[in-house]
Design a protein around this nucleic acid. Structure first.
Lengths: 194, 194
DNA sequence: ATCAATGTGTAGCGGGCGCTACAAATAATA
DNA sequence: TATTATTTGTAGCGCCCGCTACACATTGAT
């Protein structure tokens, strides 16, 4: 019983994700979101309930697609050295695509407006931790494998790369030369023994 | 002729800077700014003209005090290796002070809300470039001195440290263990040959 | 004392925000 | 067909935003 849902939920989330990805959480207005989602207030508040909840759904969608692809690039190669380079490549490739927003939605969520909302904060930190954990585990395996020396500093190296990555996502809107960024990354990784 | 200005301009800028520093540009409201500056709309729009202009004045104030101190730490030591460590120390020291906002106002200005305003964008990028230039020059001198090897990659190394620094300012609100951060920095610098 | 110039306080404008109230439309069930 | 449940469109609420209009206060010059 009851009327049927008319709008395409997945498509709506996809559209909203794009917009959040481009403009950030608090600077994207609900009316603008509704416009690209092609639904009205009625439908929205009947199903998704709030802007905060929508952002959470978008983050999940983003992590299931973009983040997933990047993580796969890291993990699918047995060598962590090649894996981390494949990971960075997926990041830089998306930079070349003019139809793609410039910053990582997840990394961009490490900002006050998002972190103020406890629900969002918990999810964002958990997701970022998960990614770091995968990277750390990959490094640890490589250390035991012999790909990395026995005394390799797994923990600290993982942290440095994560921190650098955050910086990269920030600086990248202002940096235009891909070759330079690639050189930067290569030098950093070599310096870290990767 | 005409009435005298009653409020303390420098004190007002100081107070506004603190607030912007804590909350960012677009998320700090004018009324909240006026409250801490202890002036009314009348005085404000008669002298400072706009929120954008106020932010610019605050950035200048910040760079003349905080950024200046950090740059001095980098430059005052003849060794670039010790200088860069002294620089990071000034950053971490301010972290310990609970009365200090957690992020760098200048680094925090590398965000959409600020960069959208062309006037602000130009100033922010110019200031960041200036800092990077000083660091690059310091590295170059050290290379010619012999403190660094003749084939040291000055340009790329400077870029990596700048990018890492951006990431550090982002990640740092979520990182609480100073010793860990110090270890991260030390490992990074050693890895870069510094 | 008068006057022009400038600073200050107040009241509020126009607009956007996230969100809600509610009636109309559409579905399954009796 | 009448009833009940759910979705949808619309109109607008209450609030905050940056900013402005304007009367009033205070100054130095005449």
């Amino acid at each position: 019983m009851g009327r049927k849902i008319e709008f395409d939920y997945n498509r709506a989330i996809e559209k909203a994700t794009r917009l959040f990805w481009e403009k950030g959480y608090s600077r994207t207005s609900l009316r603008e979101l509704l416009r690209v989602m092609q639904i009205g207030e009625g439908s929205f508040y009947n199903s998704i309930k709030s802007k905060k909840q929508l952002y959470l759904e978008c983050l999940k969608h983003y992590n299931n697609t973009v983040s997933r692809r990047r993580l796969d690039a890291l993990l699918s190669d047995p060598s962590v050295k090649r894996g981390i380079r494949a990971f960075f490549k997926t990041v830089l490739d998306e930079l070349d695509n003019p139809r793609t927003p410039r910053v990582c939605l997840l990394a961009g969520s490490l900002s006050n407006d998002v972190l103020e909302e406890r629900t969002l904060e918990r999810y964002v930190l958990a997701e970022m931790t998960t990614f770091a954990d995968h990277f750390r585990a990959k490094l640890e395996t490589a250390r035991k494998n012999g790909e990395l020396p026995a005394n390799f500093k797994v923990e600290i190296t993982a942290q440095i790369v994560m921190t650098y990555l955050q910086g990269l996502f920030r600086v990248i809107r202002v940096l235009h030369n891909r070759a330079e960024v690639e050189a930067q990354i290569e030098t950093l990784l070599k310096g870290l023994g990767l």
